[in-house]
Nucleic acid binder design. Structure first.
Lengths: 217, 217, 217, 217
DNA sequence: GATGAATGAGTTTTCATTCAT
DNA sequence: TATGAATGAAAACTCATTCAT
């Protein structure tokens, strides 16, 4: 009978199923929260875009907020992992800062959902992020890399010595985040589509110019 | 006609009352929407923070969306008016761009509700702003002023000639918006309170440095 | 001062104005109630379609129900007046019943708002009409006229003697009311537009045929 | 797949519960809409007369209009099914038309809620019925049956040949609908209770007389 | 683990009516 | 009489969450 099968201990397949369900929920929820914001997102919609049901959100994440928290954490984790791939050992300090700026730029353009999620979280004053202690004061790989490069440049005299890595990282982040997070309103006011390939390319180059002009000794 | 003269015209006081009611709703709604986002904002809460009732929101604005639209339009209008006050005629081009950057910086810090509102609107892809045709492609006074200054600098050879005002405005905006809009998450990750007076002051100076370094010929 | 003029006793003009206002409200309300039903009609809409304001509805009629009652009474009164014009003295009884049927038919087609109003009132079980005692058990001129004609026909042997005027009137009314009151659903189910001129003409003739066939001795 | 088999299928009982809930809502809604009209009906009242809650109306029908639509469709469907039972094979054409008229008459008297619902829908110009495409141009079993009988009568020479079934059906419907739909106002004006058994009986006989008189060759 | 049905509290919206001038 | 502003009660509708199986 079906019944006896149902009470069987969790098989490996089943656990893999479970993992898949969780992952799918997380992925869809990331999209929905980044598209509609926290309050705007509907538990029903998230479930509907999934192969499972609403009940699973409660089973795996406890509720809407739990799901959102999991989304936040996984998003930050993933972004950090990607940034781990940044390297600039083989470049001069000046070349390196330009490269870091450009890669960060691409990175933002390629992960709009994450950027939007960050906006959403800021609207709520970071109150949810605050609950994910794991991420506190950890900075980000991009800032660490910048720190190294700035040290090298400071030593060689090629880069100015009076700025710290977080300042530079902030400037770069600000520029890049704006491209994605504010494209709708800025585009509307100035008739400029910041997501268009040619515009994107220009903005990318300009960012490199700014950073190099600023940091060169 | 006798008829129209005979009918008691609404007294000036009553009209002022009406205007006051409208204005109060608008003001409170600006706060609430910027604090909670569009979906998160509650019509009830807006009304409660007011001396009138929820009913008046429907009377004057037609509904939640109408109120939000009015908030958006009035916010942009107000910000633009404030920016009209910017002047830099008496400064050298280099001094002027620094000044503009710094004033823009202050401006953002002093109007966090507006910045947050812009974030909210971007979360919704600018779909509401798109309905306020009055604002389309109008740019902003700060960009116009930059245009003049860049022209002066280009003519005198003090500023580089290959950047346009919108690019500069975008860079400055990005930097300034980030201070306010992303202070929660950035502060959390890097343990830096961007709204603290001393930090603000440093960031302000850095922005000036960046702009000057970038634009100087 | 305007004030002293305002407190002057009602002039003839003013009374005429008042009468006009009342009449306009009544006319518009007749339309709106017949289009949307009693609950569906909006006091606001009635007022807006008028040159006066909502306040006047309360001033003249006490409220929505009072207005509806006034509409009902005036509609019945008007219809009765129009029916007073029916005459059939110069026709043979057979010709006369056909003529009455046909005129009643035209009458219904030409006053759809009234017919719809009657439907509305029936939906509410005639509870409002019941308050207009003036109309109780009064029948209608059409029925009275039929009574005369039937008497003539009975006397001359041309019409059958075993039917009474109310039965005939009911049959004719039923047929005519249906044309207008049920045209939407009947038209939908049978693909027949009962308000189209040629259809109307056929139905009119058929009604005459039915009545004559039925009543001829 | 294992997956689909493993998931516990909704039990037959639960499904029956769901069906019962839906059916109960539909039944109660039919009553309420026919008693109060579309605008006059209250979602709350419908729910209260039920063992479920208002929420279920939205769950199953999407809203008030969806419920009304479902009511309309089910009402027409049911009435059609009942009419399927009409037969007249064993009667002469003349007897048959009388029989059909009388059965239709009874049918109307026995389903006042349906008749009222049709009135309600006509007040709204059939705008909702228009959305239930399934019913368009389908006519009704009564008309089809009439068509057969008329053909028989035409062939045998017992019935006149120049009328079509829809005309006859319309005449009969008009007479019958009026009994129910206009009983309140007609009764008030002529002091005749059309729902009283003896009156009903007389009207029924008269209808038969009319139809036979009209259609006999 | 999974599913469809159900729910209660909340949220937006509407409406007839009244008030102040 | 007339007008725009204001209102409270009620109506429609939504949403995160839980239950029974």
């Amino acid at each position: 009978m079906v019944d006896t099968q149902r009470s069987a201990p969790p098989s490996a397949e089943r656990m893999r199923d479970a993992e898949r369900t969780r992952a799918e929920l997380l992925e869809v929820a990331t999209e929905v929260f980044s598209e509609q914001g926290y309050s705007g997102a509907r538990v029903d919609e998230i479930a509907e875009r999934t192969r499972t049901t609403k009940r699973m959100i409660y089973y795996y994440f406890g509720g809407k907020e739990g799901l959102y928290l999991a989304v936040l954490e996984s998003a930050y984790r993933r972004i950090r992992e990607t940034e781990q791939g940044l390297h600039a050992d083989d470049l001069t300090p000046v070349e390196a800062v330009r490269r870091i700026a450009e890669l960060t730029f691409d990175h933002h353009h390629d992960h709009p959902a994450f950027i939007r999620l960050v906006s959403v979280e800021n609207i709520h004053n970071g109150q949810h992020l605050g609950k994910v202690e794991a991420l506190r004061d950890l900075g980000t790989p991009a800032a660490s890399l910048l720190d190294e490069v700035l040290a090298r440049g400071r030593a060689s005299g090629e880069l100015r010595a009076d700025v710290d890595a977080v300042d530079v990282h902030m400037m770069i982040s600000a520029y890049c985040v704006f491209q994605v997070a504010n494209s709708a309103t800025f585009g509307f006011l100035f008739g400029r589509d910041m997501l268009a390939p040619d515009v994107r390319e220009r903005h990318r180059r300009i960012l490199g110019d700014i950073v190099v002009a600023w940091l060169s000794a």
